[in-house]
Structure formats: structure tokens, C-alpha cells
Amino acid sequence: MTSRETPWIDFNFYLITDRRNTAGRELCAVVEEALRGGVGAVQLREKDLSSRELYELAYEMRKLTSRYDARLLINDRVDIALAVDADGVHLGGESMPIYRARMVMGEKKLIGVSCHNQVNAITAQEKGADFITFGPVFPTPSKAVYGEPLGTAKLEEIASLLQIPVFALGGIKRNKVPEVVACGVHGIALVSAVLTADNPRDEAREIIALLPEEHED
């Protein structure tokens, strides 16, 4: 992968939240364990919360990620991201356009974009995204709406085409990490592999040990 990475993307493990997928445990407690294990970035993705509830959770998550010197991105909601001084936002297909989010947030905030095909990925880069998540790579119920898994061949193609960091997403468990890393991605994004683990800290640590070493520009 040719590198055009911004100095702010200093993580290769991107944890996406789902408070309904924590085996009954409180979300912030599970995320903190993952942060203790070395997770470098958290995307707060709780679409069903009211604006007030999301703000309050984002505020707590900002305090938590700051304590561990980790990045916080808010799914879709630019206003919430700005309100809690998050490190950026993650946009989907129905979100605010990338250029508009950049105008509102400025150059020093991260913009990640969910991509599910080559056109999405190239467009996101051209429009100014700092990084993308690409998937689903493997079968996963949460991404079934996007159709059949894309597989590692398409992931490798995207990783070689793009200059911005690519994070593999979708059905990635610990045993799949080496296969994904071999595709040349910058890192991985996942949900359940850590959130549902009996010991999120140890699971995060073991997954990170399989990832390529982080590097600075």
C-alpha cells in the first residue's frame, strides 16, 4: 500500500461499539478493558439512541478514550463529535457528504468512510476521506444487508489501489487476522470479536500482536 496516511491515524485496531453485543456487560466497562489491551481507536456507533443519550454516552467515551490516549470517532453525527471534541466522524452511505463534513469539522479532525465496493472506496479517497473501512470481508450477520462477503481478493485489490489507510471489516476473528493482514491493509475494524470476549483486554492484546507494527509518517 502506498502511504498517504495523516499523522492522526496512529492506530491499526479500530473498535466499533454495539452495546447490545457485550454479553450483558456495561459498554464503557468493556471498552475500557479493550483500551487496556491496546485498542487505539473507538467508533461510537449506537444508532438507536436519542441525541441526548448519544451525547451523554459520547461524553463518557471521550473521557475514557482520552485516559488511554486513544482516538474517538462518532458514527454519522458531526454535531455530537464536535460537542464532545471527538477526533472525528465515521460516515456511511446515507451520511452527510464528505466535503461538507470537512468544512464543518476542519482539517484536523478525522473522517472515516464505510465502503463496500471499489467505486465507494475510490470515491471516498477522492472526496477527502482520511481512511476507509472495507467489507464485509467474511460472513457476519450485522453486515448481511450488504450482500455476500467480499472476500480477501477484493480486500487486497482495494488496499493496493488506495493511498489512504484501509481497515478490513466484517466477520474478522482472531484466527482470520493473519489472512487479512496479508492483504496489505493498514489495520482491522471489528465489533463482536472483542465486545463478546470473556476477557476483552486479553483478546484485544492477542489480536494486536498479529497486526503489522504501527508506523509514523
Rank of each mutant, 00 (worst) to 15 (best):
D18N: 14
D18Y: 06
R19G: 01
R20C: 03
G24D: 11
G24K: 11
E26P: 03
L27F: 05
C28M: 07
A29W: 04
A29M: 04
V30T: 08
E32M: 10
E33R: 10
A34Q: 08
L35Y: 00
R36V: 00
R36M: 00
G37K: 01
G37M: 00
G40H: 02
A41S: 15
Q43F: 04
L44W: 08
R45A: 07
R45Q: 08
E46G: 12
K47N: 05
S50G: 14
S51V: 01
R52W: 04
E53C: 01
Y55H: 13
A58V: 06
Y59M: 03
E60D: 14
M61W: 04
M61K: 03
R62W: 02
R62M: 03
K63M: 08
T65K: 04
T65S: 03
T65F: 03
S66Y: 02
S66Q: 15
Y68W: 15
A70P: 11
R71G: 03
R77Q: 05
V78F: 06
A83T: 02
V84L: 09
D85R: 11
G88C: 11
V89W: 05
V89M: 12
H90R: 12
H90Y: 08
G92K: 10
G93L: 15
G93W: 09
M96T: 14
M96S: 11
I98S: 06
Y99E: 15
A101M: 07
R102H: 09
R102A: 08
M103Q: 15
M105Q: 09
M105T: 14
E107H: 12
K108M: 11
K109I: 04
L110C: 03
I111P: 07
C115E: 05
C115D: 06
C115P: 06
N117A: 13
N120A: 09
I122P: 02
T123D: 14
A124E: 13
Q125A: 12
K127F: 05
G128C: 10
A129R: 02
D130M: 11
